[in-house]
Amino acid sequence: MIAVLWNPIVTKEVRSRMRTWRAPVVMAAFLTVLAAVGYAAYRATAPLVNGTSNRGQVGVAVFAALSATVMVLVALIVPGLVGGAVSGERERQTLDLLLVTPVGPARIIAGKLASALLFVLLLVVAALPLFSVVFILGGVDLGSVIAVVVVTLVTALTLGGLSMFCSVVLRRTTSATVSSYIAGFLLFVGPLVAGALVYSSSTPQQLNAITTTPGVISIGGSSGASSRGPVAFGNPAPPALVIPQKSSGPPSVILASPATAMFGTVAGGFGTRTLCYSTGIVNQVTPGCTTTNNGIVANDTMPDGVFGGWKYWQASSLIDGIIAALAIAGSVLVLRGRRLRRRTAGVVA
């Protein structure tokens, strides 16, 4: 695996990339936007919180804003990095020179992707000082930071894989890059639209159930209604408030969108934490909310379905990882088709 990734292509790509004026400009712009968003989030939430005990809520808001911005910026940068990877070699007439060497298509593609991901990693590492401000404010645990980093890198890999496929299939860099952005857009939005369609085709009773269940907000607008039976507010439950429901978490299809992973982590994990509290049922866990080790509840878990019990970001990263693997495998196969295919013929003396 390391032999596949650490190859001459990586060295060459990183070297040539970092020598252009574009690399420092992209980095500077990335950090500027990130800092501006972080500051805006701080200024917007800080006046709403009194006292130092609730400062964690400001930290949560700043963290959510920074994470979402990193994801958006990475999604904008990656197709630009990878879209021209192979089509650019073809346009510059250097692809043949590479294909006559024993470096196979797999290593060419792995090398190009690895170098693009290294640049993304550099951006993420450069952004860590900004993220560290969140720790001063508090409210965010290390696990969430790791989740955000993993989601960001997996998203970069998936977008990179899709862009690579565009770059291998299409001859011109311009069309490959444009297609890469379209593919990235579809990756983000497509699953959510599909999820909404699945959701809207569910029964009106379920819809009604969701809207009348207070205090629970989760991804896709679905309630994540209890699989443990009727939910009642207040103890004991008045029979009139018991709403029989079919188990219905958000449709699994939305997990394919990296937005779900990010939203499920930063908003589902923290934004609704407050909502979980505000229902006033600290002892009784609201459906879709889970209890973390320090006793607070978060709505970051798929309540049911294939991925029931998984965190959003875990399930989403798995699905996007599979999409990335398919796109990369497809790219290798197409590029291999451009080279001579091995035939099972004997050696001619």
Partner: peptide, 20 residues
């Protein structure tokens, strides 16, 4: 054929030598 810009002559040759 084309060449890679941003590389020196020695780096260019060394790159292909590594490929081989």
């Amino acid at each position: 054929f084309g060449v890679y810009d941003q590389l020196t002559v020695a780096e260019y040759l060394a790159f292909y030598a590594t490929c081989y």
